[in-house]
Design a protein around this nucleic acid. Sequence first.
DNA 1: TAGATTGTTAATCGATTAACAATC
DNA 2: TAGATTGTTAATCGATTAACAATC
Lengths: 184, 184
Amino acid sequence: MAETASGCSSEELAGVAGVNAAQVRKDLSYLGSHGTRGVGYDIDELRVQIRKALGMLNDHPVVIIGAGNLGTALANYGGFENWGFEIEAIVDVDEDKIGMRVDGLVIESLHRLPQIVKAKSIKIGIIATPPAAAQSAADRLVEAGVKSILNLAPTTLKTHEDVSVRRVDLSTELGILAYHLNRP
Amino acid sequence: MAETASGCSSEELAGVAGVNAAQVRKDLSYLGSHGTRGVGYDIDELRVQIRKALGMLNDHPVVIIGAGNLGTALANYGGFENWGFEIEAIVDVDEDKIGMRVDGLVIESLHRLPQIVKAKSIKIGIIATPPAAAQSAADRLVEAGVKSILNLAPTTLKTHEDVSVRRVDLSTELGILAYHLNRP
DNA sequence: TAGATTGTTAATCGATTAACAATC
DNA sequence: TAGATTGTTAATCGATTAACAATC
């Protein structure tokens, strides 16, 4: 049982995570040794150590490209703040949308992307454009100095190799679900 | 080189996929033996065999819960059709939205979910509600007979164990990108 | 001190790859 | 037949787990 309010054994952690306790200890040992023999791990300290190891101690400003339904949904998405991601700007090509507000953010012109990225030291961009515009959006992000791109459009992007790109492919997710429908 | 228009060696396939050729042959052997020694694999036949193995020969009807920005974006999302997923219905609790059109689909009442699921033999649901409504949406989907759920809300759902749930967690995706920012 | 739990080493397990006989 | 490439077995590699001395 927990010795202190936030003490926790590898056994308990493993139970919650659904993995082996030895696995937990081995993985945590990569952070250095932050457990106490006979007692367990201090959860609060662990939190900080893990965030530090993952480079997530400080906040990361993010820009969204595309203020359509998807971009708007993302701007309102509640899941980012807890993890230190802050939507700092949302841009669009459509001049009619510029100046409109989305969740407290003013939609800005795609043309201002370089200035915005520089002024706010943005390293991460999210592409929420139609597929046809995604590659061009990626090019502009890279040009502006963004180093990491989350692509929500169903397209494969070509970028310089030192830019990290991740694609969220909802078809693949559905595919995995469909597979399990047959083999339960 | 390709013997026929659609012949392809494991070496070529491995090159495109960025994996080992032996891996390709081993994996493909699980489908049964569909290559020809000395020649390679017939791409068109392979396509069919893989889709068959994954249970994706026939189309899968899908229902979206939530006709907000996210649900609307999904209904317009172009990436599903190629993979045999068809958005058959979109429902919402908001009575004001019911009857409005989204990409050729009429928004229906959440109350009609059981009838819709039954009539169209829907097995897959996508949750595009605000996080606070996600659990209730999941409950209704399961109640209506849906067996697979793709959860786009930043919440962990509790469901009966024979229901498959996948969560698309954009924070995790951003987290991985942020990690690579530090360790290139 | 006795009990508990870590950190780490050694054993196990599974997945990847190399190699090659089968065969087109 | 000679060359090419599969399908599969055996070898390698890495990841997971069990076990236990260290130590709180």
